[in-house]
Amino acid sequence: MRIGLEYNSLMNLLEVNGLSKKFGSVEALHNVSFTIEAGHIFGFLGPNGAGKSTTIRTIMGFLHPSAGNVTIFGLDSIAHSVELKEKIGYVPAEPVLYQDWTVDEHIGFLANVRGGDIHAKANELKKLLELDGGKKVKQLSTGNQQKLAIVLALAIAPELLILDEPTRGLDPLLRSTFHKLLRQYKLDGGTVLLSSHDLSEVEDLCDKIVIIHNGKLIQDTTVTRLRSNHGHKIKAHFVDGTPDLTKLKDIDDLVTTPHTAVFTVRGSLQPVLEILAKHNVEDLEITSASLEDIFEEIYT
């Protein structure tokens, strides 16, 4: 296989290098760079209009970069667009399929274009997602059209899945089923680029995340590191009264009462815990910042 010869496992599976995209005078993306390693689920976050879909459309080769480039499996995404798509499953933000075709006709078309037998996998997915193969797209609800897009993307057994808000329109039960599918796909060696607004989904599934805002990359990190950078909230109850904590380094938002102190620790917890250990602490509660909190902090 041509792709297999050029790509080796030491390379990043996907590299976005200094990507900029202008629409006339409007700069939708500015010097965005990130990489995705094989075998990971990679979260792509940002508010509406941040540039997520523009980045994904550029990765898919629908749009051409104004500057920078994208390589997938070591190949340029524009120059090798057709051969790369043999390895990519894609679910767009708004899947638009042929209204007069049935679910099975879409699968049949894909099987003819891809040249492999995808029917067994597609049938398994249809059963799992409770999708009726005989129904025309125009008879399907938005959620069921989303399911069909997921079936089409996964049935081809891709090496890379690019998902632009794939669970929009799915009920919580199906969302959970889809998450299980993604975890299994990852265990089988697959790689995922997941754009999502659902922070709990990203928190549950993703190893690494990129946050984009106004077309610029503002974070490229892991969920754990992001949470740790944004601190831990500590609530301590002291039997002998609250000591003076104002001289502690790296703490914010300190609120005290005669027996309780609540504060946020930036950086390592170790020095704070050492101080607390010197006092008679009756109860101690340490919580990480949620992604919702972090998002609020970043975007406000």
Binding site: K85, E86, P92, P95, L110, R114
Partner: peptide
């Protein structure tokens, strides 16, 4: 978009 996301030139 459906067509261009497939390996079709």
């Amino acid at each position: 978009g459906f067509l261009l996301s497939q390996p079709i030139s």
